[in-house]
Design a protein around this nucleic acid. Structure first.
Lengths: 240, 240
DNA sequence: CATTGTGAACTCATTCACAGCG
DNA sequence: CGCTGTGAATGAGTTCACAATG
């Protein structure tokens, strides 16, 4: 198939798969979230020994519509075999390429409290090639401690230099809400423009900076909202 | 304004505010997430001494469109004053009522690893009335330990009885992915039908059960996906 | 008269339904 | 024949634009 056969559409063959390079198509952000979810479930069924998977099975595992699975993958290429399904290992490789998790990433963490420590030791990160190469806190009692061999807690003042020397690409914020904006500003000044924010507040950054928030309290609020609704619909009479 | 002036719309006056009780209108789930976000930002500006806030200011703080703020609140009532804005404290009270966080909630946690311990000690939960009244693990070395006074780690076998005795309403899962489904099943059997799942997998539950997932690895994948895109669009030539 | 509240317009996302194909 | 890939139909969510109003 020749390149440039239609305006704004380019396709090319990479690693035996036809891959869409269509820059015009807008990819929903929910699609990326789901593709990561597919990745998680594929890892599990690959471990269980599955070689092939249909969109229907993968959809069931992820609790989405089978057409959704096919459409999501369709944004990036044609990875399946009609009448058969998807090769688990091949699909996993393609998805990891899409998400850019077919390589390692260096991360720096600020805020070595209970949550920060848990994040540093989280095996799910290390298993997937996300490594912490820098750790910071403003508590003099913590500075100088080693969270594990080769990773010493440094003061916030050394953030810029340490982050640059260790080639940190992703900044992780696990401080109280009151500190989060300040830390984000420091990361930005050190040219770290991807931030994973665990603090329960919004940080304000320029467009060039990418932020993903993980706010536990919001998830709990959503849960209690739904729970209340369910309790209310369940009961016929409301007590005064 | 008389009650029942239109089919399927009911309004009534509660605590000085007109509150929509329209059961027909479908409320987007994103609206609930944002309302929780408004709650977070209102808490902060109330602390800073603000008495009034406009939809424009609140929207700016939460990085959403001002019309979005007004529409979200509009699903639940009329909380503002035209030409003036919203009373911070009053709006906060109304939002907490909407989210059902104007009361305390009992939670039970399974998996007392690094993450589980951090969750138990997370001040953001305690500050907002989310209390852990039960904690479980399958490691014999941990069972019997007290994470803090009055909260002893129990074996998984005692989940059902403990959860019922302590009136646990929300189950929190902080185990490895491989255990998550089993724990969810145990919570369900103990009539805990709201689950906050920190494990990096999907748990399968019947419709009556409410689940919110907090999957760190998905957030990181989304971040690396965007980061890769940005790096690619920034560079003109691709190195081999 | 500044700001809310909201129908209508628009944009974005999901699902359907079936053609395409191994 | 069965399952993928995808245009078309549907549905959901966001933003606009302005009437309503304290």
């Amino acid at each position: 198939m020749p390149f440039g056969e239609a305006e704004s559409i380019m396709t090319c063959n990479v690693s035996n798969y036809r891959v869409n390079m269509n820059k015009a198509t807008k990819i929903p952000k929910a699609t990326i979230t789901r593709i990561s979810l597919y990745c998680r479930q594929l890892e599990l069924i690959e471990f269980d020994g599955y070689r092939m998977v249909s969109s229907e099975k993968l959809a069931w595992l992820c609790q989405v519509n089978p057409a959704q699975v096919r459409k999501d993958l369709g944004y990036f290429g044609e990875f399946g075999v009609r009448g058969v399904g998807y090769d688990v290992r091949e699909l996993l490789r393609e998805i990891k390429k899409i998400l850019s998790v077919n390589r390692n990433w260096n991360m720096g963490l600020v805020g070595i409290g209970n949550l920060g420590s848990a994040i540093l030791h989280n095996q799910n990160f290390a298993d997937r090639g996300f490594y912490f190469v820098a750790a910071f806190d403003n508590d003099p009692k913590k500075i100088g401690n080693r969270v594990f061999p080769g990773l010493e807690i440094k003061p916030i003042e050394e953030l810029a230099s340490t982050v640059i020397n260790n080639e940190v690409e992703i900044g992780v914020i696990a401080t109280p809400a009151s500190e989060a904006q300040h830390i984000a500003d420091l990361f930005l000044a050190a040219h770290v423009n991807a931030i994973l924010n665990f603090s329960p507040t919004q940080i304000l950054v320029p467009d060039c900076c990418l932020v993903e928030n993980i706010d536990f309290t919001i998830k709990l609020d959503v849960l209690t909202y739904k729970l209340k609704r369910e309790l209310q619909s369940g009961q016929v009479e409301r007590p005064t």
